[in-house]
């Protein structure tokens, strides 16, 4: 489904990173491992279409991601790629359910209310759906950002250190949620992490 070929990225200052070729199938679940500064976040951003590589290609179902125009790439990202950031990013002016609604709206999709409620229930935050980000704890915010990444049933779910701020119980719940939803939606899952709790649960790994 996703193929990375001859990929490299030049940083300002001249530093260059070459990424090994990589094939990610639809049901695959991968760990992206590597020491700090090896380019894990850079590769995730290239996979998500947030950053253009200096050389090489990323194809998503035979579609060269970086050949798309800005608006088309934005739309593609919204519909096909779910992203869970290391830091929680939510729109402060919107409550929990509205943060999910806007994700569907920006991708040009109809909001699936039942799907949203299931996600929130699975993550244990359905009673907080009317709460605003400033009224939620860090753990609740993290779970809400996972729900937002899954709301559009993406093909590829990317998570950058998704469990780093959660306790064991919540970390496993989020990980299980990511894995289950990825399977349910036939989506590939790529998690960049240092968290040993995560590495025990996923077999495939891509090392930088």
């Amino acid at each position: 489904m996703i193929k990375i070929r001859n990929l490299s990225h030049n940083y300002t200052g001249g530093r260059r990173i070459n990424f090994p070729d990589w094939d990610i199938d639809s049901m695959d679940q991968w760990l992206l491992l590597g020491a700090s500064g090896k380019g894990k976040s850079t590769l995730l951003n290239i996979l998500a279409g947030l950053l253009s590589p200096t050389e090489g290609t990323v194809t998503h179902n035979e579609l060269n991601l970086h050949s798309l125009s800005g608006t088309a790439l934005d739309r593609f990202r919204g519909r096909h790629i779910g992203i869970v950031f290391q830091q929680t990013h939510l729109i402060k002016a919107l409550n929990a359910i509205q943060n999910l609604q806007i994700a569907s709206s920006l991708a040009g999709l109809t909001f699936d209310d039942a799907h949203a409620m299931n996600l929130l229930k699975d993550l244990g935050i359905h009673e907080l759906r009317k709460k605003y980000p400033h009224e939620l704890s860090q753990g609740q915010l993290q779970r809400l950002s996972v729900a937002r990444a899954l709301i559009n049933k993406p093909d590829l779910l990317i998570a950058d250190e998704p469990t780093s701020s959660l306790d064991d119980e919540n970390a496993f719940q989020v990980l299980e949620m990511l894995q289950t939803q990825a399977k349910n939606n036939q989506a590939a899952l790529v998690i960049a992490t240092h968290d040993q709790r995560v590495s025990q649960r996923i077999d495939k790994s891509y090392l930088l």
């Binding site: 800005g70 990202r77 919204g78 990013h89 939510l90 806007i102 994700a103 920006l106």
Partner: peptide, 16 residues
């Protein structure tokens, strides 16, 4: 700025 970056990430075009 963070909201704008996030909305771009979620699929909003620059024009929007």
């Amino acid at each position: 700025k963070y909201d704008l970056a996030l909305m771009r990430c979620l699929g909003a075009s620059k024009g929007k």
